[in-house]
């Protein structure tokens, strides 16, 4: 197989990885536009979600909740329940963290907030390491053989189909929420102009709470899906993905959640396809190069507006 014939398979990997990155990117983008800072803790929020999910999964197994795989998937209803609960718990954790940390810094500059988020990132990672240790944990200990996709020279696992479909459903859900609900409109208004939004009577505290709920919940799902895809999770799981996510968010146009989704999928695909031509060790560098090129050519990103 030459580099060219590898491409269909790498595209599949890229779409899967891009879907996971996109779920993380939405949160980064919303935090940036509504709270006004780059949240460096977002990767570790993903890891937190993944570990909460792991804990719940262990709990369910311990109380004897049968986890027979659903159809062709390698996990069962217990896993789905764990994922939903973990998303909820992570969202709740983010609201508490916002109260304890970011709320006190609301009027500090973006640099202070960014520094606080780096502190939070280190804190979360070490809390995870304290409870679960630095060694990798199996997320799913079942082997699932990838099946050939008809028509193209590539294979895909049922779990990967699940990841792509779930990502599409969640993105559609976020879109519907932002477009058609009152809170979604309030969020967009606040992203456009926070002061004006407050004057028009929008409850900014509630908007901020919802931002954390959506960002945290999606981050947890992204972390768990990364666990499904890679089979193992480590406390570094989210931190390793953060650079790619930031690259995707900037590529798509920082502050625009739709741009973040497109940007993250492009980054995911570029990183994987690049491995056909250059060493796999350069994957993170690929994301970085694309981000730098975009900043040079079009600093506002694909969907960003002219400042």
């Amino acid at each position: 197989m030459s580099a060219i014939t590898q491409i269909p398979q790498l595209l599949v990997y890229g779409i899967v990885s891009g879907s996971i990155l996109a779920l993380g990117g939405i949160g980064v983008s919303l935090t940036y536009s509504i709270l006004g800072f780059s949240n460096f803790a977002h990767g570790d929020i993903m890891a937190l979600g993944a570990y909460i999910g792991l804990g719940l999964l262990g709990l369910f197994t311990a109380v004897g909740l049968a986890d027979t795989p659903l159809g062709p998937l390698s996990f069962g209803p217990g896993f789905i329940l764990a994922m939903v609960l973990a998303a909820g718990l992570t969202a709740a954790a983010m609201i508490i963290i916002d109260r304890l940390l970011f709320r006190k810094l609301r009027h500090a500059g973006p640099i202070i907030l960014m520094m606080a988020s780096i502190g939070l990132a280190l804190g979360l990672r070490n809390v995870i390491q304290f409870f679960w240790g630095p060694q990798p944990h199996y997320y799913i200990a079942r082997i699932q053989v990838a099946v050939p996709i008809p028509g193209i020279d590539a294979r895909i696992k049922s779990d990967e189909v699940f990841i792509i479909v779930l990502a599409i459903v969640l993105v559609a859900g976020v879109h519907a929420f932002l477009r058609y609900t009152k809170m979604g409109k309030a969020m967009r208004a606040m992203a456009d102009n926070a002061a004006l939004a407050r004057v028009t009577g929008i409850n900014t505290d509630r908007v901020i709470a919802w931002t954390w709920v959506i960002g945290g919940g999606l981050a947890a799902v992204a972390g768990i899906l990364a666990g499904v895809e890679n089979k193992f999770i480590t406390p570094q799981l989210g931190w390793q993905m953060l650079l790619s996510i930031f690259a995707g968010v900037i590529l798509g146009g920082i502050g625009n959640p739709y741009g973040a989704i497109i940007g993250c999928v492009i980054i995911g695909i570029s990183e994987e396809v690049s491995t056909a031509f250059i060493s796999t060790g350069y994957k993170p560098a690929v994301a970085f190069v694309i981000m730098i090129l975009m900043l040079l050519v079009r600093p506002t990103g694909i969907l960003g507006r002219k400042a």
């Binding site: 590898q6 890679n230 796999t280």
Partner: peptide
């Protein structure tokens, strides 16, 4: 196929080793 330690996944490396 050389690989770097402690990465999240090795799909690319494995695919290269499976070629041919």
């Amino acid at each position: 196929v050389p690989y770097e330690e402690n990465k999240a996944s090795y799909r690319g490396e494995v695919a290269k080793a499976m070629e041919g």
